[in-house]
Design a protein around this nucleic acid. Structure first.
Lengths: 146, 146
DNA sequence: GCGGAAGTTTAGCCTGAGCTAACTATTTTG
DNA sequence: CAAAATAGTTAGCTCAGGCTAAACTTCCGC
């Protein structure tokens, strides 16, 4: 893997970090708080790994963490969490509109969501909106999918 | 042995492996052979890392490797290399048709190409073809991009 | 208000995939 | 055809991000 060389300037974050922040963001949206055990369950990794990463997220300024007490997000963390959630939603709606099986959609979205620039997100949003507002076109394309 | 169906190109290989096989495939297409030094240059990693990985690719049956003599691809390796190259091409054409800057296209494609299922590839191919055959629609969408 | 269940943290380990430095092999060229 | 340049390899590191086992905290029912 051509690992992105660490930019000295604006700090770049890994897919893993994005996954955690997206998850924490979603949990806080949904239940008002984010527990280690739930993050671990949703990401399907061990609780120990979550604790570990949360400490890193705190050190890097994405969350504020107090031992045994849970996390809250900083503005920086929330921003990233929201961005990823947005990419997730657009991709999911776009693919789902073609009737792909939900499991496949989920897997592809999980994989792709970390790699989409602002510009590409705009393109995909546009495509999604066009298809949602133009059922004729969508039907035509779906017919071609066989 | 009970029958274990494994039809859907199971993700048994890493993104890194796909990157190498895509690159080796492209080089062989273009020049008839793939040298360590060129693979390293294209993936922007060290030659030592390439040698290392090539040995793994041989061990896992994707290429045949002879010390100091270069690599050739097995059928398994070629299949993956072609698949990734195909995903690469579809994504590139789709995004480029909206006039996104080539550097951005390239980065996004590099990131996304490893995560696209057969079904999603079909959807994206369809969208690409529709836009290429329907300049009206493409123009309309591009106008909306601002 | 205490004891066990549930949740969290620590310690120590592993693997993938990069790196550099030093060496070896091959190719090119004066 | 030998020596310099180029290409390839090996050894030994690093780092991210997983893991398990065991220890520690918190919470809840009795």
């Amino acid at each position: 893997m051509p690992t992105k060389r660490q930019e000295t300037t604006a700090h770049v974050h890994s897919p893993a970090i994005e996954d955690y922040l997206e998850q924490i963001h979603n949990l806080i949206e949904a239940k008002g708080y984010a527990r280690v055990v739930d993050i671990a369950k949703n990401l399907r990794i061990s609780q120990a790994s979550v604790t570990n990463m949360i400490q890193r997220l705190d050190a890097e300024g994405y969350v504020i963490y107090e031992r045994y007490r849970g996390v809250i997000m900083t503005d920086a963390g929330r921003k990233i969490g929201q961005e990823i959630a947005r990419r997730h939603e657009v991709l999911t709606r776009l693919l789902a509109s073609f009737g792909l099986d939900p499991q496949t959609v989920h897997e592809d979205v999980e994989g792709m969501e970390h790699h989409i620039s602002r510009q590409t997100l705009e393109v995909l949003t546009l495509l999604m909106e066009e298809l949602e507002g133009n059922p004729e076109l969508l039907m035509k394309l779906k017919r071609q999918l066989g």
